[in-house]
Design a protein around this nucleic acid. Structure first.
Lengths: 225, 225
DNA sequence: ATCATGCTTCGTTTATGATCGAACCATGGC
DNA sequence: GCCATGGTTCGATCATAAACGAAGCATGAT
C-alpha cells in the first residue's frame, strides 16, 4: 500500500526528471501542447502523455482541448507556488525564460495556424473584435454579435459561406508565441480568406509565414484598431 | 546520466514515503535521533540511516553528534519552507503536532539521560547556570567560568573528582521533550551526583525517573533560580 | 578490560515505474 | 469519401533504488 504523507505523492510527481522538465517549462505561464512538452522533456510522445495524465491526476496541471491539440498549463497558483519554492531551494532560480515560440520574427508576427491567422496580427484581430463587442462569449462558446455579423459582411465574409455547418463557428485558439488567444474556427478561416482576397497579405509557399504588404498592414491597422 | 532540472533531485528526495515521514516529523522543530526517525518512518534502522544520508547530501537535514546519538534537524529555513509549501498544497496542512517525547509527566519533568539530569529540571539547571555566567562557551566548547567553579565547589562538587580526565567536562545535550539544551558530560553527572548526595532527589529503581522530594524541589528552585 | 547500545556499511532481493514501439482513436484538411 | 497529424492505450523491457540481515565501528557504562 506504500503509505506515507500526502506530501510524498506530490513530491514524487515532481521528482521524475521528465515531469520536472515539463513543470519548469510550464512555469513560463504559457500553455503548451503534449508534443511540445515531450520535446521539452526529451522523451517520446507516449511517455509525455503518460506523465501529463499523472500530473493532472495530482492536480498540478490542467488540460485544455483546442482542436486537435491539447494544451496543458499549471493548474493553479498553488501549484506554481510549490514549483517556485522548489526552484528557489534548488538554485534553479533564474527561471530558464527562453523566448517562447518560433525564433523567426516573421513567424512571430503573422503565420497560419491550421488555416487561420495567428501571431501578433492574429492576437490583434481577436482583441479588436472583442473590444468592439463583435465577438461575445455565450453559453455555447463564442459567437458573433449582430453588430459582428454586420462587420463581417462589410469585410467581405458572406454568412452563406459557412451557414448550417456543424463545426464551431468561432473558437478561441491559444497563441503560440504570446500566451494570448486568437480567433480560430471557421470564422477565423473566413477572416484569413477575406484578408487574402483583399490582397492585404499572402501565404509564402512552403512556409507558415503570412506576408502582409505595406498597404495591407496599414489597412489591417485601420480595420482592427 | 538522467539529466533534468535540479528541482527534480530535491523533489525525488521528498518523494519517498519514508523520507517524507522523516521530514514531516522534523517539521515540529525538534531534533530527533536516527532510531526515533526510523520508528517515525516505519522502517528499519539501516534504511533510515541511508535515507538520512541522502537527505543530508541534498541539504535538507543537518546532523549533530551528541554522545553516541546522532540528532538530525531540518537544515535551514529554506528547507522548512519547501516542506511547508508542499504540505500546504497536499492538504497535510494541520501539521501532526504530536506531543514530543515521553507521555509520562514524571519522565517529562525529571529523568536521567545517560547519567545526568534531563527533562524540565535539567533544562532549568542549564538555563540558570548560563544566565548567571557560570557556564560559558569558549573555543573548545563549554567550560565553567571561575565563578562557576566557586559555585560548583559550594554545591559540593570537588574539582578533584574529575581533574585530568579526557572526556569533555561539559556538554550541551539536546533535550528530548522540549527542544532545549541541558547540561551533559562529566559535569552534568557531577551535578546529578551532588543533588542525590544532598538528598534532594533519588532515582526510582527500574525506571529513568528522578523523583524529587518536596523539600528537594524547593531547594533546587532556590539554588537555580 | 568487557559488554551493550546506536549507527553505518555491504550485499542481496525485490518491486515499482519510466520508456518506447505498435496499434488505435479523433480531429482537421482535402 | 480519403489521408495526415496529434494523442492515447497497451504490452514488454529494463533500470533504479528501497528494504533488510549481517557484520563492522564507535561510544559510553561498568
Amino acid at each position: 500500500m506504500a503509505e506515507g504523507p500526502n506530501i510524498s505523492r506530490v513530491a514524487a510527481l515532481i521528482g521524475d526528471p521528465a515531469r520536472a522538465s515539463i513543470l519548469v517549462a510550464l512555469m513560463r505561464g504559457q500553455a503548451l501542447t503534449v508534443s511540445e512538452l515531450a520535446t521539452e522533456a526529451g522523451v517520446g510522445l507516449p511517455t509525455a502523455s503518460s506523465h501529463l495524465a499523472q500530473l493532472q491526476a495530482g492536480g498540478l496541471v490542467a488540460p485544455r482541448k483546442e482542436g486537435r491539440h491539447k494544451y496543458f498549463r499549471l493548474a493553479s497558483e498553488g501549484a506554481a507556488g510549490v514549483i517556485e519554492a522548489l526552484m528557489g531551494f534548488a538554485g534553479d532560480l533564474p527561471a530558464p525564460k527562453r523566448a517562447p515560440g518560433p525564433r523567426d520574427p516573421a513567424l512571430r508576427r503573422a503565420r497560419v495556424c491550421y488555416n487561420h491567422l495567428a501571431g501578433e496580427m492574429g492576437v490583434r484581430l481577436y482583441d479588436s473584435l472583442i473590444a468592439r463587442g463583435h465577438l461575445v462569449t455565450g453559453t455555447e462558446g463564442m459567437t458573433l454579435s449582430p453588430g459582428g455579423w454586420d462587420f463581417a459582411s462589410d469585410f467581405g465574409i458572406t454568412s452563406g459561406s459557412f451557414a448550417g455547418l456543424r463545426p464551431p463557428l468561432c473558437r478561441e485558439c491559444l497563441d503560440w508565441s504570446a500566451r494570448r488567444s486568437h480567433l480560430g474556427g471557421r470564422l477565423g478561416r473566413a477572416f484569413l480568406g477575406a484578408i487574402e482576397a483583399k490582397g492585404w497579405a499572402r501565404r509564402l509557399a512552403g512556409t507558415r509565414i503570412i506576408a502582409f504588404t505595406p498597404e495591407g498592414e496599414r489597412a489591417f491597422a485601420r480595420a482592427f484598431p
